[in-house]
Amino acid sequence: MSDTATTGQTAAAARPAGVRPGRRGRPTDWRAVGAFAVLTAPTVLGLGLFKYVAIGWSFLLSFSEARGTVDLGSWVGFDNYTFLLGDEAFRSSMTGVILFTIFIVPVTFGISLGLAVLLHGMRRGRAFFRTGFLIPAAVSYVVAALIWKMSLFNGLPSGVANTIGGLFGWDVQSWIASTDPPLYWIVIITVRLWLQVGLYMILFLAGLQAIPVHLYEAAALDGASRWARFRHITLPMLRNTSVAILMLILIAAFQAFDEFYNVFMTTTGNSTAPVRPPLVFLYDTALKGQDYGVGSAGAFLLTLLIVLVTLLQGRLVGFGRKD
């Protein structure tokens, strides 16, 4: 910090003269400590309780038999973990969410980037279209799932998808209930695309606006084609933005809950759901089934998967970083 900063603070703290700027901070300024404590206490206590205590308790529960109770004491070692790893329902929920992630990540990334590049190149109407693509981002998954399930892909001849299909002479599809071929993936993927593309498009637009124009001008003078400019200027300059966005899409995909719950829920529950991602599985196990031990163990396994994939992605994208 500069000299003015130090003198300003020492003067205000009314410390005796002779405390040299370099040694400031040795005698504790209790008024500063008090103010610091008042300002940070709510956040520190809140996060301490709802993150640290919660996670610590859950960690202990994951090694306990805790059905219908959250009391610790009946330790079972790794039984909850081994049970889950051997459980067909949990394993298929893990493979289901991995499949979902493999679909959703590149599609969301590609469409957001594509729209951002197109909007960025527009002279007129950019703000209008930006609003158009962003509005769905303010809609909840419940509302989106409702429109998709009861209107777009409702499986009746009156459904939008079936009406359009009818123009091409296609048969009426049941979409959500269709497992062979698994058309429900189209329903699930498009819900999330509709809600998320606008957000990531805004982030890409911010990244694009930060690229210095003179780079493009120099490239144009050299006769670089549109594609060459995109490939050799836009993509490398968007590197940090892209890494951040990939991470956001990925972590959100692994924690998918809302659209799976609402699209596949029927009057008799969600036992017929073709895919139950881990969060739905945990909800059913811990909150419906009140098995908090197994539920906690599942939460840690999912967290482990998220951490591993994030690290792996960091490694992959980290290659060729020297430029």
């Binding site: 500063a32 301490g48 919660a54 308790w57 924690q255 906690s296 967290t303």
Partner: peptide, 27 residues
Amino acid sequence: ISVPGRGVVMSFIVVTLMIPTSATFVP
């Protein structure tokens, strides 16, 4: 506000960013 232990409080808060919702909703 420069006080002793500020870095510890900072780390205490920032570390929670790495905890996904999935790990905390049951507890």
